[in-house]
Design a binder for these strands. Structure first.
Lengths: 251, 251
DNA sequence: TTTCATTGTGTAAATTATACACAACTAATT
DNA sequence: AATTAGTTGTGTATAATTTACACAATGAAA
């Protein structure tokens, strides 16, 4: 399974504990929305399994800062919407850890880790996924066809989806996942995908407009094979205000 | 401020890192309800400030297990409703740490700690608060008059209250805080205290009964200076079922 | 016996959520 | 150029839920 460890990695493996807090990691569930599908950014370790992008907490760095640093490293983006959602602390959550890391026997990396899950909402088109030096691949996966992930990462992802679902009415989820201009059907697909249920088209539009956080533009979106829908954008000011009070209702 | 460290403490201070994960702690916000007030169990360090009861994570122990162990140590109770709610990971969250621990200069305890917040719901009357060997006092405090706590513990407590408020409709909060038999006005006070708002008496009763999770007993509660109210209890079976689907509505 | 604070109870009005149908538009097809 | 297929835009009636609100009965204390 494992090859020899390159020079760059060696320092990390042998001396990482001087830089990072031991026993503690951060894993990110990075959501994007594209072609009416909710997607998650996954990476694949060199010669290894798929997993959530993650990293470690520097000794003088806040947890939130770690997460946004990791996110920046993986997506190139700054100012990303990022939310801590759960800590995974089972004593045996990293089963088969030796198998995946046979060359790291005495490294701090082989210690038990408790990991803090963050979810991020990013605009799909702005991300250029780039694998890091630990990984071969970095790409988007539809949430309906996630591969088997390392350790408890499938569980972490499920929990993130769960929290995302419950947050739909009091976090700026639409705002962060969609491009600046979007159509009502696109927004509806986003809601339907996250909630995993169908919503009546007219009632959806009625409720979203009643929240008074959207602005309909003069433009329409052309190019589709059908009637051209209007474009909308969020009214950031009103949106932020509404979120403070919690968006009412919920489908 | 500090006295000499007793023998028992010395081993913990000098060798704790052999038993516990470094950099990681658990703090518990233990809620109880008594005399129509929502209360929190606080402890006071020997010669030190008030704080949330907390502890550390053993190397082969899950996070949840740590929390319930800590809770058991502090309250004597088992099978407590316990819920992780947030991780506090600011790099400088433990300000004035040296001041409070002047005798521990080189101990693992002086390292930076990230702490996982758990909230617990206990039946007030079943708890006999007992300070541990680190603390002088252990007692209940009304949430409206919490003293200044060490580090960021006031912030942790506020966050717990926040989460408790938001969880009222999909967690068994009433069930765990009240004694087996209780009156409708008592239940209403509990809701009003947690939500920090008044609720119409008739509408409250109507909704709670419509959830079909309460059983009215033949008994009434006597001894009060007024008309004797009926006693109720939760129908555990129906209650659990309802919670799975999320209690509807919400005041 | 009276007083006082509290409990138990129901209905009407307002708000919110749900169900549902047809004409207009656009690109693709013929 | 006309037709087709699939999608968009729009409003109303009904059901469900939430809110507002008043008075008689009770039990202890005065």
């Amino acid at each position: 399974m494992s090859k020899e460890i390159p020079e760059l990695d060696r320092d990390f493996v042998e001396n990482g504990q001087k830089t990072y807090l031991r026993h503690l990691s951060v894993d990110c569930v990075i959501f994007g929305f594209h072609e009416n599908e909710l997607k998650v950014l996954l990476i694949r370790w060199k010669d290894g399994p798929w997993c959530l992008p993650g990293g470690f907490v520097k000794k003088e760095e806040s947890l939130d800062k770690s997460a946004s640093r990791i996110l920046h490293e993986r997506t190139g983006l700054d100012d990303i919407f990022l939310q801590q959602f759960h800590v995974f602390g089972d004593a045996n959550r990293e089963k088969d850890k030796e198998e995946f890391n046979s060359k790291l026997k005495d490294s701090w990396i082989m210690d038990r880790f408790v990991t803090v899950g963050y979810y991020a909402l990013v605009e799909y088109s702005k991300v250029k996924p780039k694998p890091d030096w630990l990984s071969d691949e970095c790409s988007w996966w539809d949430i309906h066809s996630i591969p088997s992930l390392v350790y408890d990462h499938n569980e972490i992802l499920e929990k993130a989806l769960d929290v995302l679902r419950q947050s739909l009415n009091d976090h700026p989820i639409g705002y962060n996942l969609l491009p600046e201009k979007f159509t009502m059907p696109e927004l509806q697909r986003l809601y339907e995908t996250i909630l995993d249920k169908e919503i009546d088209r007219r009632n959806f539009q009625k409720k979203l407009l009643s929240l008074d956080i959207l602005v309909r533009l003069e433009e329409r979106k052309t190019g589709g094979a059908h009637k051209a829908p209007y474009l909308y954008r969020f009214d950031k000011r009103k949106y932020d205000r509404a979120l403070k009070e919690g968006l009412t209702g919920g489908f």
